[in-house]
Amino acid sequence: MRGRTGPSGRPCNASLTHRAAGSILASVPPADSDIVLRTVRLTKRYGRRIALADLDLEVRRGRVHGFLGPNGAGKTTCISLILGLIAPAGGHVEMLGLDTRTQLSQALRRTGAILEGPAFYPHLSARDNLRIWGALSGSAEDRRIDEVLALTGLQARGRDKVRGYSLGMTQRLGLASALLHDPELLILDEPTNGLDPAGMREFRGLIRELGAAGKTVFVSSHLLNEVEQMCDDVAIIKEGRLITQGPVAALVRRGDALELTTTDNERAQTVIRTLKGVGSVTREQDCLVVEASRERAAEISRALAEEQIYLWELKPRESSLEDFFLEVTSEGNARE
């Protein structure tokens, strides 16, 4: 589902009812060997405050997995736990088949990560920074440094001191450092922060390319459009609790409702309600929203024509990840 375009513009702004959160998990559970990253009842407390509660995440091999949540939902805490920067109050993490309680270093050596706002030595050039990170990962060859600088569009500025870099350039350098040792798994925390629209688009393209090349990417974001466009799967958390996870395609359903505008919406509403196989019919601003599949469109248009009500417009309504996200992150939907 990569490369999907975002939701089309709609005259009406109300959201449709989605299936209950939690019921859209992939119907066939992936085999264990397919799971590259798994958190098992991962919990973190700061004093009395629960930052993360019993989080069970699964990221499958070769997929781009989005990690969505409102600001303060616990995304960065979760990523810090996964990367071993903070200690959990409960639960554990399995990464690349390794239990990070005992094999954290081994797992991290096969993982590339960008933390929220990547950090560098400001008095050193990008090249020197990459040499340092490469030394820690065991891959400080100049050839590889050239490759990742070229990949991230920083080749011309590689000898400049990082203190002169813009935020966007720093993000690019973050990605270069994450890719330096050719990791199997990429964990990216809000990687497009600070990028301009063109940079964000380019970055998304790069992530999709990495996914297509077989890398597994786990990327946190609060930008729904971004996740919808570049991710295969998504997990949504709120207030430290997992609300749902599964393929984006399953969340963004299409064609389960129709939007129509007629010469007489009031009468059309009455007529359509008499039809079999049609769910609710609601008026939203200057259109009607009919809960019905795309296949019912012909029948609806014929029934209306018979009553001398004519269509101005009839189209399937596409629900977006944004609709879904806003619905499941609204009050009272967190899975207990």
């Binding site: 810090s80 991290l108 820690l136």
Partner: peptide, 14 residues
Amino acid sequence: NWGTVRQALIRGQP
């Protein structure tokens, strides 16, 4: 201050 301590540790350095 630079945040590089976190960056170093996520590279698998104990």
